[in-house]
Write a protein that binds this DNA or RNA. Structure first.
Length: 519
RNA sequence: GGCCCUAUCGUCUAACGGUUAGGACAUUGCCUUCUCAAGGCAGUAAUCAGAGUUCGAUUCUCUGUAGGGUCACCA
């Protein structure tokens, strides 16, 4: 608090345009600004750049706000909460732009553009034919008409020269005089262009640091010319490297599959993981750590560590990272997140409440994002936890390889299952703590005859050693799950409970015998 | 095409003139094992190219090459 007294308070802004949803590139810009602001006890402003009425998409402002909030980004002033610099919609700040535009007109640094669209187009074509860059200033009207608001207003570049400037993230940058042209300040519809509006707003809102995307580098000379014309000091530029699509060929954009940020929410990604992942495309604190919480990112963040080169958005690694964050969740948090995606068909069953905790624990190692539980369901890998499965004789009988030379008939397997049932029947019904916490290592709970993973294993083991592990454990497991692939039989038995375990083994036994008689 | 930016394993990256160029994801093999998953161990894999500066370049300079951005009454 007291160490920044001598310095000007840091003010940043995130200024999206309401032209649709928010994608990961935009979020990353907001994230860096936010990390920087919060680390330095600054102030963050949310401003909506809605000067293009054509492209505006209704509802996007609310959608953007929701997106930002989801990943944990907040702001001190904005259209939703107000503030001393209100309004925060550019469309409501037209008077300001007009005021500064008039200043420039009075100074002789801005003038009305009298050309029609067709005339402009022919100039452009001319330049193209001559293989030179089109510069409006080469066609600047000698005696422009007075600006009455019906024509576009352009900035007059008086002395186009090479421009040099410093960017906090990119270092020293420069551009030739070709980058400087008489650009439009106010459009003929009365709205300002981005180029003009953002500079006025940043001035009035006293923004000190502009975090922006890579594509603004090329228009920076124009901004600089405007700052100069207005006679004002510019904020610091912090230009972020681009995020490329998975193929690394193109800047990630909506057209190239950049998803709506909120899609990640509906797929069961954790906001912490998204933030962690995004933070590390284009920035790294150094060292070998990769998993960071929002708090850690905030503590570690420095502009100096922002990269210059672009990075790819690789969702395979995002999935890995999401799992890492899922693993950090407490059981209760995990369960809460998971249950959103469990089909109602299952969650309304009588067996659901007593088994879901255990299912959470089993599923923990297997999911990279919560919606994958639905994929499990679709594959038939979830239902058997709650409902007795149907059997397939070929699956119930394990493979030759598993038998390790031993002969096995259906009747033989039925007998083995009967023996397993007998042994398991001797165990007491579980009365202890929830199964997901009752998986003691070693012999804890193994000798007391309680129904848990360890005691189940001990009950089954002698039979498995006698008849062959492959045959017995496979047989019991499939009797419980009905599936070729599933968690091990001990976990399954523990999860579904003693009664259900015995009942399912009985069913499998009967199934084998009946099948035998029938065939 | 003009202007501009960038360049380390397939991908995300570490290194701020001296390292056997490190980690992670992915991939491959092995171990564990009743299957699947998880886990453990191991392996393959990079400084775009060419000049210079330097005792020494991934690191600094230049050229080339490649990729990207931008040249709107869009932001």
């Amino acid at each position: 608090m007291n160490n920044t007294d001598n310095n000007k308070k840091i003010v940043t802004r995130f200024a999206p345009s309401p032209t649709g949803y928010m994608h990961v590139g935009g979020v990353r810009t907001a994230l860096y600004a936010w990390l920087f602001t919060r680390k330095n006890n600054g102030k963050m402003i949310l401003r909506i750049e809605d000067t293009d009425k054509e492209r505006e998409v209704p509802g996007s402002i609310a959608h953007i706000i929701e997106s930002l909030k989801w990943v944990g980004i907040d702001w001190d002033e904005g259209p939703d909460i107000g503030g001393p610099n209100a309004p925060y919609l550019q469309s409501e700040r037209l008077d300001s732009y007009k005021k500064y535009a008039q200043v420039l007109v009075d100074k002789g640094l801005a003038y009305a553009d009298p050309y029609s669209e067709e005339e402009l187009e022919s100039f452009r074509k001319q330049a193209e034919d001559n293989k030179t860059a089109f510069l409006y200033r080469n066609h600047r009207p000698e005696n422009p008409p007075a600006w009455d608001g019906s024509m576009p207003l352009r900035l007059k570049i008086v002395d186009p020269q090479k421009t040099k400037w410093h960017d906090l993230a990119r270092g020293d940058l420069e551009a030739g005089p070709e980058a400087l042209d008489d650009f439009i300040l106010i459009k003929s519809d009365g709205y300002p262009t981005y180029n003009f509006a953002h500079i006025i707003d940043d001035l009035e809102m006293e923004v000190t640091h502009i975090f922006r995307a890579d594509e603004f580098i090329s228009s920076t000379p124009k901004f600089l010319a405007l700052y100069k014309a207005l006679g004002i000091q510019r904020p610091e530029f912090v230009t972020l490297p681009p995020i490329m699509g998975p193929d690394g060929k193109k800047k990630l954009g909506k057209r190239d599959g950049a998803k709506d940020l909120l899609d990640y929410r509906s797929e069961g990604y954790l906001p912490e993981a998204i933030v962690n992942f995004l933070a590390l495309i284009g920035w790294h604190p150094g060292g070998n750590d990769e998993i960071f919480s929002m708090q850690e990112l905030k503590d570690l963040f420095t502009i100096e560590k922002i990269h210059k080169s672009g990075g790819n958005f690789n969702d395979v690694k995002l999935n890995w990272m999401n799992r890492e964050h899922m693993l950090k969740l407490s059981h209760e948090e995990y369960k809460k997140n998971l249950e959103v995606f469990i089909p109602e068909h299952l969650s309304t069953l009588d067996t659901y409440a007593s088994r879901i905790d255990s299912v959470c624990a089993i599923v923990r190692d297997r999911l990279e994002y919560f919606k994958q539980i639905q994929e499990m369901y679709d594959e038939g890998d979830l239902e058997y936890f709650f409902v007795a499965p149907l059997y397939d004789a070929d699956i119930l009988m394990c493979s030759e390889k598993m038998r390790k030379g031993k002969d096995l008939t259906r009747e033989g397997l039925a007998k083995i299952l009967a023996a397993c049932k007998l042994e398991l029947g001797k165990l007491a019904t579980r009365t202890g703590p929830a199964p997901y916490t009752a998986a003691p290592e070693g012999d804890g709970g193994a000798s007391d005859g309680m129904w848990n993973r360890e005691s189940i294993k001990n009950a089954l083991w002698p039979i498995a050693e006698l008849e062959g592990r492959g045959i017995v454990l496979w047989g019991v497991r499939v009797a419980l799950s009905g599936k070729e692939k599933s968690p091990d039989p001990f976990m399954l038995a523990e999860t579904i409970g003693k009664d259900e375990t015995l009942a399912r083994i009985q069913r499998a036994e009967t199934f084998l015998k009946e099948k035998l008689v029938l065939s």
